[in-house]
Write a protein that binds this DNA or RNA. Structure first.
Lengths: 272, 272
DNA sequence: ACCTGAACACCGTTCAAGT
DNA sequence: ACCTGAACACCGTTCAAGT
C-alpha cells in the first residue's frame, strides 16, 4: 500500500496551528466562527489562505499585498494578522495549501496496488495538475526555502517523502536507491514543471508591447542568430505534455534498472 | 525577525554625511563626479548592476531595495533611475549580467573541437559554477519570465541557444532533435541547480530557532514518519555534485542514442 | 550632466481602541 | 472575540531644483 497514510483524517486544516497565541485551553467548544450559513463573514485561517490562492491565480503574485487581500475578503488588512503571523508566513501557508491539494486528488490517492511505477506516474501527474492549475503559485512552490534539506520542492511535505520512500522500499529498492530515486524524481518534476508554467505564463506577460514607434528597439537584432531564426517554428512548439511523459518514462526506466540490477545505468548501456 | 535590519546604514564607504548639522565647511572636498582615474565614483549601468549582484550575494534578495542599493553605492536611490528604468528592470539586468558571466568563462568558451558531448558538459558545468557562486540570485534566473518562450532558463540568452543548436546540428542531429535536446537540457539544469542552491541556502535560513520554550512545537511530530526518521542520515547527505554528473551523463547518453539511431530511447531499451 | 530633496501613493506591522 | 483607526517606518517612483 502506497498512499500516504491513508484515511486518518489527515486533513491539513485544523490542528497543527502552533502559533495560537495563548488561550486555547477553553473548555467550551470554541467553534471558531463559521455561523450556520457559512456566509462570507467568519474569517478563518483556511479561508484566508484560500483567498490568497484565488487572488494570486487571478492577479498574479506581485499583486498580493496584505491590504489588497484584506479588501478582497471584505476586511481591513490588520484583521488578517489574527490568522497569519505575517506576509512571509502567509506565502508559506499558500505553498502548503496548494501542495495539500494533492491529498484530495483521487487519481493520486488510489490504492497503489499497481506497483511503484504506477504510483510514481500518478504522483507526478498529480503534481503537474496542481502546477498547471496554479501557474502563478508554482514558482513559490519551487523557490521557498524548504523546512528541511530533505523536504524538497516540489513535494515539500514529509508525508509525501515518507510515502514515496515506503513505496520504493516495499517494492524492493534498497534504502540508498530509494533516496537517490527521490532526489532524481524531485529534480525532474521541478525542472520540467517550472519551465512548463513559465512557458505558459509568457504568453500573457509581454506587458507593454510598444506599437508603432518606428525607430524603436524592435526586440533584438535577430540576424546574429540565424539558427534560432530558422528553427523558430520548431522552437515555438509547445510539446510540454509529451516531453513530460517521455522524461518521466525515462526516469522510471532508469529506476527499473537500478532495482533489477542493483546499480546505476551508465552511458553505454543502451547499446544492444 | 527577517532580513538584515542592520539599521545603521550598511554603507561600506565612509560617512556620507547622514545628518551632521551643517558643518562641512570645506567646499573643495566634494568631488562628486568621475575624475580621470575611473575612481569609485562615476556611476554607470554596469557598476549599478554589479553592485546589485554583490548586494544580493551578501544580504539576500529580499534586502535589495532601491534605497539600500543607492546607499551601498554612496548615492541617493533616485540617482539609480538614470541607469535603470525601475526595480523590475534592475532585476532583469541582474539576471542578464549573471548569465553573461558565462561568456567570460574560459572553461566554457574553449574551441568546441572535442565534440558536442564535451561542449554540453562544459556548458553545464559553467552554469553550475555560476549558480553556486550566486545562490541568492539563481532563483531569479530560474523564475523571471523569459523574453521569448524559446529562451529558457537557465541559459536565458539567444546567443547560448544559437550556439547550443549549432553545436548539435553540426554534429549530425536533426533540427527537431536538437530542439528537443535543448529542452531536455534546460529542464535538467534548471531542476538540478535550483534544488542544489536551495539545499545550500537552507543551512543558513533556519531563521529564529526557538530555544528552550518547553512545550513548544518542536518542529513536527516525526513519529508519523518512521521511514524518514530511519533514513535521516541518508537523506541528509549532500550528493549534489555526484548526482549532477550522473544525471548529466545520463542525458548525454540519451542524446547519443537519438543521434545514432534517430529515435528516442524507450523504457525497455536498457535490457540486453 | 548628474545628483538631491521633497513629495506622493502604497507597503507591512503594531497597538490601543471600538463593538 | 474579532475587527478597525491611527500611526510608524519603510518602499518605489516623480519631478522640480540644485550644482
Amino acid at each position: 500500500m502506497t498512499g500516504p497514510d491513508t484515511r486518518p483524517d489527515t486533513r491539513p486544516d485544523e490542528d497543527a496551528d502552533p502559533d495560537s497565541p495563548e488561550g486555547r485551553g477553553g473548555a467550551a467548544v470554541v467553534i471558531p466562527a463559521a455561523p450556520p450559513g457559512s456566509g462570507r463573514t467568519g474569517l478563518d485561517r483556511r479561508r484566508v489562505l484560500g483567498a490568497a490562492i484565488e487572488f494570486i491565480d487571478a492577479e498574479g503574485l506581485n499583486a498580493l499585498t496584505m491590504r489588497r487581500l484584506g479588501a478582497y475578503l471584505g476586511v481591513e488588512a490588520m484583521a488578517l494578522y489574527r490568522y497569519v503571523p505575517g506576509r512571509e508566513q502567509l506565502l508559506d501557508g499558500v505553498v502548503e495549501s496548494v501542495i495539500d491539494e494533492l491529498y484530495g486528488d483521487p487519481d493520486v490517492h488510489l490504492a497503489a496496488s499497481h506497483g511503484w511505477q504506477d504510483y510514481l506516474q500518478r504522483l507526478a501527474h498529480g503534481v503537474r495538475r496542481i502546477a498547471l492549475a496554479h501557474p502563478e503559485v508554482f514558482p513559490l512552490v519551487a523557490t521557498r526555502p524548504p523546512a528541511a534539506p530533505w523536504v524538497r520542492p516540489p513535494l515539500r511535505s514529509l508525508r509525501w517523502v515518507e510515502s514515496f520512500l515506503d513505496a520504493l522500499i516495499d517494492s524492493g529498492f534498497s534504502e540508498a536507491s530509494a533516496v537517490a530515486a527521490y532526489r532524481a524524481y524531485s529534480s525532474f518534476l521541478l525542472g520540467h514543471l517550472l519551465l512548463e508554467v513559465s512557458q505558459k505564463g509568457v504568453k500573457i506577460s509581454p506587458e507593454d508591447q510598444p506599437e508603432g514607434v518606428p525607430g524603436a528597439v524592435a526586440t533584438t537584432d535577430l540576424s546574429e542568430y540565424p539558427t534560432v531564426v530558422r528553427l523558430e517554428a520548431l522552437l515555438s512548439l509547445d510539446e510540454s505534455a509529451a516531453e513530460f511523459e517521455e522524461a518521466l518514462e525515462n526516469l522510471l526506466g532508469r529506476l527499473e534498472v537500478v532495482l533489477r540490477e542493483g546499480r546505476t545505468p551508465r552511458r553505454g548501456d543502451t547499446r544492444g
